[in-house]
Design a protein around this nucleic acid. Structure first.
Length: 512
RNA sequence: GGCGGGGUAGCUCAGAUGGUGAGAGCGCAGGAUUCAUAACCCUGAGGUCGCGGGUUCGAUCCCCGCCCCCGCUACCA
């Protein structure tokens, strides 16, 4: 009944430091992976760094470093960020690993054996700074007589011997794939773009470079290094051990989580490579949006760059994760600011969930002698609350299947609000004086709600949710989705309640 | 230029195969309450559903035109 769940983030280009976009993608993928594990699925969560290419060689050279040492340091920076954000990847792949190189070369040979690779010449206007060729129409000749790329970098006519991949062969098969599985790429707008791109016709793809050597060598052709995307995309496959036996346990991926800017590489080139090599395709590509600051893409020149680790440091990892997952419809661009994170954390975490847990647990501590109170005859209100809780997991599963953490969060918070309303209506603090047995029943149900909510909250906020479950004395064995049915046992001794979600304030603002 | 998506409450968004008073969360205001993290709960304020035409008994949802925003339009990643 449970199928394996294999998820990847994009492979992070090791040319720069980790930024908030990497953090966002990692947190989203982490939520998906943790949810799958919680649901009892065998999960393989892969992330890593893309460490080859001319730009990295150049950046390393500028820093006076050997490329290998430079990328090792960069990879550490990514690992460190992930550790600090609580990312639960099972494998961190680096494209400079020997095993990866072996897999890339094996993929190359497989494509070659299928007749999809041929040696030719690539020529055009090349910009060294952009590391790219441009069509003549894209360039312009300046007043100084020099021809420039759109970026403003000078270009020169360059002829390079290059291997080509017969991408043109695959247009029909790609269109058939898109037609058969319209949700193969999500959101739908990205699928439309990919279909339009392929319908315009595909040219063969230059897949080797002779202008630098920091990459995977083309087998049998010294002087040629593989185009970085052949190398990078294969990093999703190489951790499986392919082409050695046993790779089927780790491939194909259930979903690739990527940024919208690299959709084409994943939705066109990658399936074509795999088709050529006779390998199964990933089951889905999900392109998320960008994080914006003050309505614009972050850039150093605008001075609106937001550092993810600084945010985690200032406000806590879980509030940051909660913001990423709940505040932004996954797939769309979203705004990030300290103000927005604080507002969200105070509204959802401190006021709603934190306060719900605190009022429930402190009433139990005071009135029920610190034990799970006794259950009893149920009123229609009790049944309504329980019924509402019971549908929470299916809503969350549907959101997970749709790769929409935001919808799962909305489903959970609907129960938080319902439980607060239930408590207000039942008023156990008043009942305590008139009908203590009934007060116990109400508190029992409130505690049950907190338990179930905390279980579902674990993928988003592992640390905070665990603290809630600790306070309800929920055993480790009862914290999975399968454990949702294990109701609290009256009489269980509970630890003294402690606030889990403090109210936040902006730096410089008086705490209230 | 071509193709695609979008313009709905202060903000972020949902929604209606055309028809009782257009929704949610946040924010804001008022009320109630005091178990709780000045939190929770209730109520509310009224947004010409981008602009102008058309079709229709009736359109914000259909058609036409216009304005604006965004994405894609291949070999940087």
């Amino acid at each position: 009944m449970t199928s394996p769940y294999r998820i990847t983030t994009a492979i992070h280009y090791a040319n720069g430091r980790p930024h908030i976009g990497h953090a966002y993608e990692c947190v989203a993928a982490d939520w998906l992976a943790r949810f799958a594990r919680l649901d009892g699925r065998e999960t393989f969560f892969l992330t890593g760094t893309d460490e080859h290419g001319l730009k990295i060689a150049q950046t390393a050279a500028r820093a006076g470093r050997a490329p290998a040492a430079f990328v090792a340091e960069q990879a550490e920076a990514f690992r460190d960020m992930m550790a600090r954000l609580g990312i639960s990847h099972d494998r961190f792949i680096r494209t400079t690993e020997a095993g990866h190189r072996t897999a890339v070369q094996a993929l190359w040979r497989a494509m070659e054996a299928n007749g999809d690779l041929y040696l030719d010449r690539y020529e055009g206007w090349y910009s060294v700074r952009d590391e790219a060729y441009f069509d003549a129409e894209e360039t312009h000749v300046g007043e100084d007589g020099v021809r420039y790329a759109p970026s403003g970098a000078p270009v020169e006519w360059t002829v390079e011997e290059s291997w080509f991949f017969r991408l043109s062969r695959y247009a029909g098969r790609l269109l058939a794939l898109y037609a058969e599985r319209p949700d193969w790429v999500q959101p739908p707008s990205r699928m439309n773009e990919m279909r339009a791109f392929v319908e315009r016709g595909l040219k063969d793809l230059s897949v080797s470079r002779t202008s630098f050597d920091w990459g995977v060598p083309v087998p049998g052709h010294p002087g040629h290094v593989m185009y970085v995307w052949v190398d990078a995309l294969t990093s999703y496959l190489s951790p499986s051990g392919w082409p050695e036996a046993g790779w089927e346990a780790r491939w194909p991926a259930t979903v690739h989580i990527i940024g919208k800017d690299i959709t084409r590489f994943h939705a066109v080139y990658w399936p074509a490579f795999l088709m050529s090599a006779g390998l199964p395709l990933p089951e889905r590509i999900f392109s998320h949006g960008f994080l914006l600051s003050r309505g614009e893409k972050m850039s150093k020149s605008l001075g609106n760059v937001v550092d993810p680790l600084a945010l985690a440091e200032a406000f806590g990892v879980d509030p940051l994760r909660h913001y990423f997952l709940s505040a932004i419809p996954f797939g769309q661009d979203g705004e990030v600011s300290a103000e927005a994170i604080v507002r969200r954390a105070n509204a959802d975490l401190a006021n709603d969930l934190g306060n719900l847990a605190q009022r429930t647990l402190s009433m139990i501590a005071k009135a029920a002698a610190g034990c799970v109170p006794a259950d009893g005859p149920k009123t229609p209100e009790d049944r309504a609350l329980l019924a509402h809780l019971e549908t929470m997991v299916e809503e969350a599963r549907a959101a997970h299947a749709a790769v929409r953490p935001d919808l799962a969060m909305a489903a959970i918070w609907a129960r938080v609000a319902a439980t607060n309303a239930y408590l207000n209506a039942a008023a156990p603090w008043a009942l305590r004086k008139t009908d203590p047995a009934r007060a116990d029943v109400v508190l029992y149900h409130a505690a049950e709600a907190v338990r179930q909510i905390a279980i579902l909250a674990q993928p988003a906020m592992p640390g905070s949710a665990a603290r809630l479950l600790d306070q309800l004395a929920v055993p480790a064995s009862g914290r999975s989705l399968a454990g949702l049915g294990q109701a609290l046992v009256p009489g269980t001794v509970l630890p003294a309640p402690q606030g889990v979600f403090p109210r936040l304030s902006l730096p410089g603002e008086a705490a209230t």
